[in-house]
């Protein structure tokens, strides 16, 4: 087990070396290096799974790859001489408007929460899974969908469009959850 864990470390470093090579090359060889890096990532996960079992080994392997990534970035660090500050052109920011800000907050916060809970309820009630799985997956989807709604609302330049998408998501979620019960006459 110990040597398989050691192999996991070595393979994760090799995977990052593959990615580093792909990043540095501009020719066709970059695709081969990229493919090698991906293959070595899979090999890393396999080695860790052998060392600690798949359930613990895969998160261990992924954690190891994250740290290896930081090490490779650190090794590639470039120190430049200090440069005097000067006024430069930077990407334009969206001009803040109070009214739009309030609407976006309502969309990203309460409406996003309502929409995501709708999806969660739909899965918890209607997904073709066993009861416990339906409940837990439904509950897990709530923060995931809410985060998606939040990102969408704040990034979409058109407030009306994002309002319609969120409302549509909410309506769809509750409809999927409740309509079958209406047809059965249990609501």
């Amino acid at each position: 087990m110990t040597w398989m864990a050691g192999l996991g470390f070595v393979l994760s470093a090799a995977a990052l070396a593959g990615f580093r090579l792909a990043w540095a090359r501009q020719d066709q060889a970059r695709w081969a290096a990229l493919a090698l890096g991906i293959a070595l990532v899979l090999a890393t996960l396999w080695a860790w799974s052998m060392a600690a079992g798949a359930e613990v080994g895969i998160p261990l392997g992924i954690t190891c790859l994250c740290l290896a990534g930081y090490l490779f970035v650190g090794a590639n660090m470039e120190i430049r001489p200090a440069r005097a500050r000067r006024v430069t052109a930077t990407p334009e920011e969206r001009k803040p408007k109070f009214g739009r800000g309030v609407v976006r907050f309502i969309l990203a916060g309460p409406l996003g929460a309502v929409a995501s809970i709708g999806i969660g309820i739909a899965v918890a009630m209607q997904a073709p899974m066993v009861e416990q799985t339906r409940l837990v997956i439904g509950a897990t989807l709530v923060p995931l969908v809410w985060a998606g709604c939040m990102a969408w609302t704040l990034c979409d330049g058109r407030v009306i469009r994002s309002a319609m998408v969120l409302s549509g998501t909410a309506i769809a979620g509750y409809a999927v959850a409740l309509l079958p019960l209406l047809f059965k006459g249990t609501v």
Binding site: V73, E78, I79, L144, A147, M150, A151, L154
Partner: peptide
């Protein structure tokens, strides 16, 4: 939730994020 949302929008809003994966220019 906000952090997860930032992760999502962060990936989408930085199209060069993987292309620059090893650049670290200090100073």
């Amino acid at each position: 939730v906000a952090l997860l949302s930032l992760v999502m929008s962060g990936i989408i809003s930085h199209p060069r994020i993987f292309r620059d994966a090893f650049s670290l220019r200090l100073g």
